[in-house]
Amino acid sequence: MITWLVDPWMWGDWMWRGMLTVNLVAIACAVLGVFLYLRRMSLLADALAHVALPGIVAAFLVSGSLDGPVMLAGAVVVGLLAAGSIETLSRRPNIRSDAAIGIVFTSFFALGVILLSTVVRDAHIDTHCLIFGDVLGISDRALWLVLTVVPVVLGLVAIFYRWLTASSFDPRFAAAVGIPVVAVNYGLMTAVTVTAVAGFEAVGAILVIALIIVPAATAHLLADRLVTMIAWSIVHAIVSCWVGLYLAIAINTSAAGAIVVVGGALYLLAFLFAPRHGRVVGMWRTRSRREA
């Protein structure tokens, strides 16, 4: 057992690189995810993570470079463009906001995939990696990107904590006390895009969504206060990363996929057995009430 836990660390530096990167990304996603989840923006996060792919491709087309800052800039620009389009579209009386999200992100994603397979085919963009991630093959570039982005994102959340809380809980009140609600909203979306890009190489465009939504959804079943919810969300992220990574090594499969599957299993556990809001407790409570 011990050897099984310790051995992977001896096999080369990919283990600690992967573990460090994926944990940091997962923690940042988990913290941002709490606010996105509570603001009912889960699916917007989904859209933004998809849209970051064409963002990176666009940045490459314009600048010919794949440096971290260039990728981030491209993804943020395209991400905000997509968010703006979604908002504009959903203001039209005949388009619901969920349809607007679906229209915009699938179109952007399709464009990104086509560009990847044609115009920029010769560039060293690993499509497979961008979409599915490769936790155990983290490059220096990805490592540095994560080491820079994650502390900045977490720092900003800490600084703007009061604005985020108030505008998530009660946007009208927040606006009335002078909190720039719209700016907070776009700031949050920018942070999500940046974190998603940083996490791409590790977990890929689609699975990063799981790192954003699932920890928050799990934590909401366990917590009655925002700080505790964030704490649970981080715990969920870390446990999924460690268990998932070991699982992936043990059965020789995709680490990103395994992390997400473990995260999903933890959600299911919380959904059923959470002490106050779990379904099993709920059913037991209804039954004892009926008997009483």
């Binding site: 509570l38 009061r162 108030a166 917590a223 206060r225 505790t228 919810m229």
Partner: peptide, 11 residues
């Protein structure tokens, strides 16, 4: 929303 009455008043 995971917030207590006291926290709302503190806002």
């Amino acid at each position: 929303f995971p917030i207590t009455a006291g926290e709302v008043v503190r806002q």
